[in-house]
Each structure stands twice: as C-alpha cells, then as structure tokens.
C-alpha cells in the first residue's frame, strides 16, 4: 500500500529536481537578491536591506512606465489578433481539398521558426529595414519613391516590430491552427454544404466553435510570449550602438533600460520581481477566464 502511494512521488522526483533547479531556484534566488544591496560597490559582500530596492523600483514606475504598460497591451493585442486571423486563413488554404505540394508549403511556412531569433532579427534590420541597402527601400527606389526610415519613428518602428514578430511567431500558430482544423470531422462540412451554407457561414458557425477549445491554450501561451517579448523591440530599436530614436518601450525593455544597466543587481532583481508579479496576475486572470469558458 505504502509502496503504491510512494511510487508516483518516486517517479516524479527527477522532474521535481529539474523544476527546482531550473525554475524555482532562480526565482527564489532573485527574490533573495532583491532584498540585498548587491551592486558594483557591494558585489561579493552584500547584505540585506529590507524593502529599499522595492521602494526604488516603485519610483521607477514613473511617467514612462504607464505608457510602456499600455504599449505592451497594444503590442500583445495587435500581434495576437493578426496572428490568429492570418494563421486561420493560411491553415484553411493549406487544408483546402485538392491542394498540391501541401507539405512543401507547410515546410516553407515553418522556416522562420527554425531560424535563431537573434539572427533573423538582425537580418531583418540590415537586410530589410536598412535605409541605404535594405530590400524595402531598394524596392521603393525602383518604383520611383523615396526611401523610408523604418525604425527611427515610433509608429514606423512599432509596425516594423509587429511584422518581424509575425514572421517569427506565425509558424507556431499555423501548426496549431492546422492541427485544429484537421481534427474537425469532414462530414459536418458535407452536411453544411447540403444545407446550403456558404464559406463564411460554414467557418463562422462550424469551424470557429469547433477549434475554439483546441486553440485556447496555444493562443494563451502565445499571448504570454508576446507580452514578455524583449528581443525584437530591443534588437531592432535599442541595441547598444544602434539606438534608432524610436520610443516603443514595452514593460520589459523599459525595466531593462531603467534598472539593468545600473549594475545594481538588488535593484534589478526587485524590478524583475515586480514584473513577475504583474505577469502572474495576468496569468491568473486568463486562467480563470479559460475555466469559465470550460477549457
């Protein structure tokens, strides 16, 4: 009996050890550091200073922080809406009967996912958006228009970052959408066709309700990944030596710019914990929404 009760714990132990080592320990250590004065001047001999770093980190949440939060919400919403819509129609196209070279298209559409993010972002920056040599400005010049600075103006830079994020994130959404579509019994569509349902009616009343429970989890996951997106905004507009002048700070880039460059690990840790709490709150809200939806 005891053996039976212990067995599941025993099997789970390796995984628990990994979770503690890889996830819980860094969080706990960051929390500990956030209560210390670990900085350049107290690098190895730091001591606890109570909530001082949190007071300082809350002061950082100045006039620039709220716009960064709102921008992050806008960034997340725009990206998710575009990803879901584009992935939906691409997946419909990939599942259309009689499509030839389906596997080839799928492989090509997966390609951006296979590229390391850092490389693809810098390729976009130099290869596409560069004002002198970028493909987009070369194309505009060929068509007789003058070039555009894609990254120096905040609106242009925001759109450019959305494009790069779409390019990178779409494959995942597409795979999920494709799998969800394939799980729908084809006989439903046959019945709908017999009943005279057109394209929009079939997909609005049949496809969308059918894929909703399947897509809820990937969309939620992508929402968090998009919310805490850092590298695209940072590498396209804020990289050291390549600051473009656009101000499209998200919560993470804002905190990085304010706290992490100070070499004050206590202060940076406190800022990280605050962002962590913010994400946990959002996560809890989303989970309760999903529960209400029965997913």
């Amino acid at each position: 009996m005891l053996k039976r009760r212990l067995a599941p714990w025993l099997y789970s132990t390796p995984l628990f050890i990994i979770i503690v080592a890889v996830i819980l320990f860094p969080i706990a250590y960051t929390l500990y550091i956030s209560f210390t004065n670990m900085n350049v001047y107290h690098w190895f001999e730091f001591e606890t200073i109570g909530l001082e770093n949190y007071k300082k980190a809350l002061l950082m949440l100045d006039s620039g922080f709220l716009p960064a939060v709102l921008r992050t919400i806008l960034w997340t919403a725009v990206n998710i809406v575009l990803q879901v819509i584009i992935a939906f129609f691409l997946a419909l196209g990939l599942n259309s009967p009689g499509l030839k070279a389906r596997t080839f298209y799928k492989t090509m559409l997966m390609f951006p996912w296979a590229m390391p993010a850092y490389v693809s972002i810098l390729l976009w920056r130099m290869g596409m958006f560069n004002t002198e040599f970028g493909f987009l400005n070369k194309l505009l010049e060929m068509l007789g228009f003058s070039g555009i600075n894609y990254l120096s103006n905040s609106t242009n830079a925001f759109i450019s970052c959305v494009v790069v994020n779409l390019w990178q994130a779409l494959p995942f959404m597409l795979i999920m959408m494709d799998s969800a579509l394939q799980s729908i019994d084809k006989s439903y569509y046959e019945s709908a066709l017999l009943d005279g349902a057109g394209f929009w009616k079939r997909h609005l009343n049949l496809t969308l309700p059918a894929i909703r429970p399947i897509m809820a989890a990937p969309i939620l996951m992508t929402t968090f990944l998009t919310f805490k997106q850092f590298d695209i905004v940072y590498l396209l507009t804020m990289q050291r030596g390549g600051v473009t002048g656009a101000n499209i700070n998200t919560v993470l880039t804002y905190v990085y710019d304010k706290a992490f460059i100070t070499n004050n690990y206590g202060y940076s840790s406190a800022a990280s914990i605050l962002v962590f709490v913010l994400i946990i709150i959002l996560s809890s809200l989303s989970r309760s929404t999903l529960k209400q939806e029965g997913v």
Binding site: N149, S152, N153, R240, G241, V243, G245, I261, T262, N263
Partner: peptide
C-alpha cells in the same frame, strides 16, 4: 569610473532622439 556604464545608454538615447527623431 563605474558610473560611465549607465552613461553610454542614456547618451545614446539622447543622441538618437535629437539626431534621428
């Protein structure tokens, strides 16, 4: 001096805002 570490970023942001924006 250690304080220079923060100046690179602040100055880069300032220069980009004035020269590029």
């Amino acid at each position: 001096i250690p304080e220079m570490d923060v100046m690179w970023t602040v100055t880069d942001n300032l220069l980009a805002a004035v020269n590029k924006n």
